[in-house]
């Protein structure tokens, strides 16, 4: 692995599983020092032992927890170059007809408010970097920002909202001369614990798996490691001219019409 991120410090939210955990590994491989958040302390401990990353038990939607987290990071690392706003949930989701207000509020809190707080605190820290302002922020949206799902209304809505958040933040950071870039990635279906859990708890797991696989004309889900290369690229100085972009990484799932 090349070392494009040597000397950089990264924060990854939702880093204990799925795309987040794979990105912890990838950014460490590329030379970065990595801190991550999450709620699964057992998984976090293993990942820390494996990678040397640091774990911070913070819920991204908890606004009061952020100042303390940023102080911890400052004490540990003294700077922040990369933030991956990755934490997300679909817990409590449903259709417009049947979603509960608790479900809606939970998903908006994690997927939307959590991303806002991550980007806000990351950019404030990056502005204060020793040697001058600068950094790269990557927001994990979803292809469902472009193709809403009927039975996952709040997920679709929040993943779409954070694209506008990304562009607004990118413009603010660019026009105020901060040298902080903000971009979104829009993955298709990735074989994470969240998805395998949905499959296993569905009425017909075989059919559900086939349905997820058929969303891409490649007839498969992505592996988590197929997403991390894009995050690493956008995190690196190679992407210095990229800001405000939304990169779809979905095996052509949204390149055409569904189901044909």
């Amino acid at each position: 692995m090349s070392k494009r991120l040597e000397g950089k410090v990264a924060l990854i939210t939702g880093g204990t599983s799925g795309i987040g955990a794979a990105t912890v590994r990838r950014l460490v491989d590329e030379g970065a020092k990595v801190a991550f958040t999450g709620s699964n302390a057992e998984a976090a401990a293993k990942l820390c032992a494996e990678t040397g990353a640091s774990f911070h038990a913070v819920r991204v939607q908890d606004a009061d927890a952020w100042p303390k987290l940023m102080e911890e990071l400052h004490t540990l690392y003294g700077r922040l170059d990369i933030a991956f706003a990755n934490a997300g949930t679909e817990a409590g989701d449903g259709s417009i007809e049947n979603i509960s207000i608790e479900g809606w509020n939970n998903i908006v809190a994690v997927n939307q408010t959590g991303v806002m707080l991550t980007v806000q605190h990351a950019m404030r820290a990056m502005k204060a970097n020793p040697g001058g302002s600068g950094g790269a922020i990557i927001v994990n949206s979803s292809m469902n920002a472009l193709r809403a799902m009927g039975n996952f209304m709040a997920y679709s809505v929040t993943k779409s909202a954070v694209i506008a958040l990304t562009k607004s933040a990118a413009l603010h950071c660019a026009l105020t001369g901060t040298k902080i870039r903000v971009n979104a990635i829009l993955p298709g279906v990735v074989e994470t614990a969240m998805i395998t859990n949905l499959i296993e708890h569905s009425a017909d797991p075989v059919a559900t798996r086939a349905a997820y696989e058929s969303l891409s004309p490649m007839k498969r889900m992505a592996k988590v490691n197929e997403i991390t290369g894009l995050v690493a690229f956008l995190s690196s100085d190679e992407a210095a001219f990229i800001s405000g972009s939304e990169y779809v990484i979905d095996g052509a799932s949204t390149a055409g019409m569904q189901g044909v």
């Binding site: 413009l171 290369g229 894009l230 690229f233 992407a239 972009s245 990484i249 095996g251």
Partner: peptide, 24 residues
């Protein structure tokens, strides 16, 4: 990046590299 195996799940995508011009 697109040429490499790092982009193995990426097809049918568009990479805008414009310094934020079209995000405005």
């Amino acid at each position: 990046f697109l040429a490499s195996d790092d982009a193995s799940f990426m097809t049918g995508s568009e990479l805008v590299i414009d310094g934020g011009w079209t995000a405005q």
